[in-house]
């Protein structure tokens, strides 16, 4: 049953991705990306990743849709028909995809309990019994039912600190790009000599 739902959702994801590629109305594209996020969240629930599904719904379908729509309000919603031949990109994509598919034959089969991924630290996390470096037999036990929270905040706190810093850095980046110069757009006329003024504001 799990596999059937999994297959159906993956099929829907593939169809939605195709729609995203082909539509030229960018508002429709952004809305399709929202649907795509919801579908992938459903897929994550089937794959037992409830926390990831929650995040995907809140972030992927909520905030990123809003941000993309805000961008479209500023840059316009039509994508121009491109004149370039699609042959070379298609060739690159097919060759890359072919090689990747060939590579999947060496991957462990999906969903098997004895895959290498499940062997290293995951059992210790799940048993809430993580050996500490240093003294022999010293273990860390947190006693919180949601293992994802425990791993996120405690066992892998460094990772999360890094990710939080990246989010903060992205905010600084956007503010740096947006605050500052209010330069007029160039519309073919002679270049205005305002290069010096842009940095000062």
């Amino acid at each position: 049953m799990e596999s059937v739902v999994d297959l159906a959702l993956l099929g829907l994801l593939a169809v939605t991705a195709f729609g995203v590629l082909h539509l030229r109305n960018l508002v429709a594209v952004v809305m399709l990306m929202g649907i795509y996020s919801f579908l992938s969240a459903a897929l994550f629930v089937v794959l037992d990743a409830v926390d990831v599904a929650f995040t995907e719904v809140a972030v992927g379908a909520g905030v990123s849709t809003i941000l993309a729509l805000g961008t479209l309000a500023l840059v316009g919603t039509r994508q121009k028909r491109h004149a370039k031949s699609p042959l070379i990109p298609l060739l690159i994509v097919l060759v890359t995809g072919g090689m990747l598919v060939y590579g999947t034959y060496d991957l462990p089969r999906w969903g098997e309990p004895d895959n290498p991924v499940h062997g290293h630290v995951a059992p210790e996390y799940l048993a809430d019994h993580v050996p500490l470096a240093g003294d022999e037999g010293d273990v860390l036990e947190v006693h919180i039912p949601n293992i994802v929270t425990t791993v996120l905040a405690s066992y892998r706190g460094y990772d999360t600190l890094g990710e939080t810093t990246v989010v903060f850095a992205a905010m600084v980046g956007v503010l740096t790009l947006f605050v500052g110069s209010r330069r007029q757009r160039r519309t073919g006329g002679p270049p205005a000599d305002d290069e010096g003024g842009s940095g000062a504001s």
Binding site: D51, V52, S64, V117, V151, E163, G173
Partner: peptide
Amino acid sequence: NPLPHVLMLTAIVVGVATMAM
């Protein structure tokens, strides 16, 4: 396995931040 979930959870949030960038 909870480990990929943790890594991807943070990756989604970082992803939207970089997309905003």
